[in-house]
């Protein structure tokens, strides 16, 4: 008899466990609030030139230009999610002439939407001089111009100064990168 009632109790407990199955409040719509804020950094233009490369110019100013067509900003992902960007430039100059570097951003129609430039001072004693420039693009500050950009023109100006010979000492190097801040979220 004792055994029988024990078994009944066991069954009762079993039943209780199954009946007790339940849930607590959950809210699956929270997933809509998900967002990610990745920051990506990409190398951009670079070069290294020797003083002799510019001797043709003598002591006169000279401007050299080049361009790239860039399609990377032409998509909805960038349009919706890019919230900030910056371009960082670093020049190391050991040539005794001063340089100006200028970047022009053009939109689809070929209109300049943004321009900036910075100076690299001359290295009188041919010691490497490091110059940094950071060009920010933020909300209310040229970010839209960047998103419209389809080509970038790059100009190097050799400013007036001491004439350079083919054997003039020194080099100028440029390194650059872009840093892009995204805020990715449910657009609905």
């Amino acid at each position: 008899m004792i055994k029988q009632s024990l078994n009944k109790n066991l069954l009762f407990v079993l039943l209780l466990v199954f009946i007790q199955s339940c849930t607590k409040d959950v809210d699956f719509s929270q997933a809509d609030a998900i967002e990610a804020n990745p920051v990506n950094q990409v190398s951009f233009l670079f070069f290294e030139a020797e003083a002799g490369d510019f001797f043709v110019a003598g002591n006169q100013p000279v401007a050299l230009s080049d361009f790239i067509n860039i399609d990377a900003f032409n998509n909805t992902f960038v349009d919706e999610s890019l919230v900030m960007a910056e371009f960082e430039f670093e020049t190391i100059n050991s040539i005794n002439r001063s340089y100006e570097i200028q970047m022009d951003f053009f939109d689809e129609a070929g209109t300049v939407v943004h321009t900036f430039s910075f100076l690299t001072p001359p290295s009188v004693n041919n010691q490497p001089l490091v110059t940094n420039h950071i060009e920010p693009f933020a909300e209310n500050n040229n970010l839209n111009a960047l998103k419209q950009t389809r080509s970038i023109t790059f100009t190097l100006r050799l400013l007036p100064g001491q004439a350079l010979s083919p054997t003039a000492p020194g080099t100028i190097t440029l390194r650059s990168q872009g840093k892009f801040y995204f805020n990715i979220k449910n657009q609905e």
Binding site: S43, F46, A49, D66, L174, Q177
Partner: peptide, 8 residues
């Protein structure tokens, strides 16, 4: 990066 050689 993009090597610039026109200018140099």
């Amino acid at each position: 990066g993009i090597p610039e050689s026109t200018i140099t």
